[in-house]
Design a protein around this nucleic acid. Structure first.
Lengths: 206, 206
DNA sequence: GATTTTTTGTGATTTATTTCACAATAACAA
DNA sequence: TTGTTATTGTGAAATAAATCACAAAAAATC
């Protein structure tokens, strides 16, 4: 795998994937690029070029096999390959993400949550235990976890990120608005929940 | 306003904004494009071109005024202009979003939640009431709300979206994995929580 | 006050992405 | 069987985005 798919493409791939799920449920076995394109408001050749990237050949006058497309997208985006992760910060957002079982179907397996509030420690959320943050380095090493989902308050974000780096975490999915400073070997993905929406909403509203 | 800023730019703007908040808190009054660029791992001319878009002039050998930049970003992204919205679907995600007070500081004001579960109706979440979904058309009209945050299960997403369209909702922030079919005058923003992260994670992990 | 240095602003270049256009293919209909 | 049509696959063209390169400005230093 790892063909270094551009972000824009992988975003489209997840949309294609949702359409495939819908078609499968409806019992439709084939789909054409113009059908998908119209649905998403994009060009049909775009769809075909994306599928080319998946090495997924279509059939003239028929289109693509829905099942095959779904499988290739899952393989390419790594839904298949399960990855373990910790949620760091057990506030509203952290708890909601822990309850969000969709992660699983996308190949992301939440093993545990962490917090510094003694009151929360040992609580169970969706069958996942909340540990005191001090237990993280040990557990990360023992369980071989190197992905952390960061949902602490902004004020603590950098300090906790430093702690995660020291705990050999290699991927931080940053749900805080802080711009984290980390060494180059650690990768941060900023989840910009507001950014894109605001732009979308403001274009017309303001 | 409404200069139709590309998505990539508005994403960077939110990151710049976070850095401005951080600098202000640290009492630093000016910032240069190379400082920001290094922090985000991008080119410094990129930063200057983005600021040009904000009509925000810098000063040679000094940089930009942090306060001014923060204000222009807020104005451009519409943090200033308050917008009212409903959360439709009071499951884990909907409730978490209702508790997520950050929305407010970004100019998005959650007025109420909706659900079809009679058990949830009339509950208060972060001082916001949960109404039965049947009350939505009326409330939307009376309060002049045309933004809905959709957090229902995928299976119900299209049906609820149809209902929202009939209720004169004009903007749907879609947190479900469904690809919604709506008339052209209604705008859907798909929040692709997994898409971008998976790509990020899989690039190296798989 | 001259010189050095840092930083902006921006045109030119490069790279990436999207759209266009159309030949090749194969199902379908007459 | 033969023409018609829908669809793929893909080069070429157009558009968008990022990077480079450097002149102009102004603070800092000597």
């Amino acid at each position: 795998m790892s063909k270094n798919i551009p972000e824009k493409v992988s975003n489209r791939l997840t949309l294609y994937h949702s359409i495939m799920v819908e078609y499968l449920e409806a019992g439709i076995e084939t789909i054409s690029s113009p059908q998908i394109a119209q649905r998403l408001g994009i060009d049909d050749s775009q769809v075909r070029k994306d599928f080319k990237l998946l090495n997924n050949a279509g059939k003239c006058r028929v289109g693509y096999l829905v099942k095959d497309l779904k499988d290739s997208i899952e393989k390419t985006l790594g839904f298949a390959q399960a990855k373990d992760a910790f949620i760091v910060g057990s506030g509203h957002l952290g708890l909601a993400l822990a309850k969000y079982d969709n992660f699983n179907s996308y190949g992301l397996n939440i093993l545990a949550l962490f917090d510094n509030d003694p009151q929360k420690v040992d609580m169970l959320v969706n069958n996942k235990q909340i540990f005191h943050i001090s237990k993280l380095p040990n557990l990360a090493e023992r369980l071989g976890v190197d992905i952390a989902i960061l949902t602490v308050p902004r004020q603590n974000a950098q300090a906790v990120a430093d702690f995660l780096v020291a705990s050999k975490i290699k991927y931080i999915w940053n749900f805080t608005p802080a711009v984290l400073k980390v060494p180059p070997e650690v990768k941060v993905w900023n989840e910009n929940i507001m950014g894109s929406f605001l732009q979308f909403a403001c274009k017309d509203i303001i």
